Simulated assay, not measured.
Amino acid sequence: MKKIYPDTEKESNYSNLDKMSTKELLENINAEDKKVAHAVETQIPNIEKLVDAIVSKMKLGGRLFYIGAGTSGRLGILDASECPPTFGVSDQMVIGIIAGGDFAIRKAVENAEDDFEQAWIDLKKHDINSLDVVIGIAASGNTPYVIGGLKKAQENSIITGSITCSNNSKISKEADYPIELLVGPEFLTGSTRMKAGTSQKMVLNMITTSVMIQLGRVIGNKMVDMQLSNKKLVQRGVEMIVEALDIDEKLAAQLLKEHKSVRAVLLSRNKA
């Protein structure tokens, strides 16, 4: 019987990669990457439903958890780690968990993704509850770590979502809000850090950005709650204030230094 592979593991549409010139390699990779945005576009209705569910839970004090292994796990951690500096929220609001623990962020942990029970153990360390939402990320859609975590979350009345790059995958069946990004076989057969990873990253960007905007963490199109953690961001904050209040840069800098955030400056001036 012929083995059936997940979409992400199917044979590349390209042969003899080792015979291609650098230009041919780059052009062909780019040709495949162009398919990603379209695959994401087809899933906007499903992404919308998941975002709305997250917003409703977060308004009640809930949190968003990502669980994944390998590249998928790292992408979840990346997205979670960028929320505090971008939106000024607690690092406990969006939490990324990877199979194998933090060590696996940099180095592969053998067999970590095959443990069906471990994701729920990892989630319970954060006192997960029914106000929270869990999104499982797995390019193949077959990762036991993710499947097990979603299954236990559902059993405990926790809303679940999934992001995969395979059709009718196992994690989709364990998700209230499944997202399937059908980007097709990778240029390099099975290398899901490529198109699959890119599509997952795009959706994660869409989810947290939309959620934070819906929760009021943005004014206009500005990151008014961003953490002022370096000179570049302080200067960006000053420029936001100059534009919003039509004042000179020196006064804007003084106000930002006094109030510690762009939002606080804008609110103080509006009250005045």
Results as ranks from 00 to 15, higher is better:
residue 108 A to P: 08
residue 104 A to M: 04
residue 253 A to I: 00
residue 48 E to R: 06
residue 51 V to R: 05
residue 118 Q to P: 03
residue 100 G to T: 06
residue 200 Q to C: 12
residue 264 A to S: 10
residue 147 I to F: 14
residue 62 G to N: 09
residue 29 I to Y: 11
residue 216 G to D: 01
residue 229 S to A: 13
residue 86 T to M: 12
residue 130 S to I: 01
residue 78 L to Q: 09
residue 153 A to G: 11
residue 143 T to Q: 07
residue 60 L to G: 05
residue 261 S to P: 02
residue 28 N to V: 00
residue 150 L to T: 11
residue 263 R to E: 03
residue 154 Q to Y: 05
residue 138 A to W: 00
residue 194 M to W: 02
residue 226 M to G: 09
residue 214 Q to R: 15
residue 30 N to D: 07
residue 56 S to R: 13
residue 83 C to G: 02
residue 156 N to E: 15
residue 177 Y to C: 04
residue 102 D to I: 10
residue 125 K to A: 14
residue 155 E to M: 14
residue 253 A to F: 02
residue 157 S to K: 15
residue 161 G to H: 10
residue 180 E to I: 08
residue 156 N to K: 13
residue 222 K to T: 13
residue 58 M to W: 07
residue 170 K to P: 00
residue 76 G to R: 02
residue 220 G to T: 01
residue 123 L to S: 09
residue 255 L to K: 13
residue 5 Y to H: 03
residue 102 D to L: 09
residue 167 N to S: 07
residue 152 K to A: 15
residue 90 S to V: 05
residue 174 E to K: 13
residue 84 P to I: 05
residue 123 L to R: 12
residue 224 V to C: 09
residue 61 G to D: 05
residue 152 K to S: 14
residue 188 L to Q: 09
residue 105 I to F: 07
residue 192 T to M: 04
residue 124 K to Q: 15
residue 226 M to H: 09
residue 225 D to K: 12
residue 71 T to E: 08
residue 261 S to R: 01
residue 204 L to G: 10
residue 96 G to S: 10
residue 256 L to K: 01
residue 104 A to V: 06
residue 69 A to H: 07
residue 91 D to N: 15
residue 166 S to D: 09
residue 157 S to V: 08
residue 150 L to A: 10
residue 7 D to C: 02
residue 176 D to N: 14
residue 113 E to A: 11
residue 74 R to I: 03
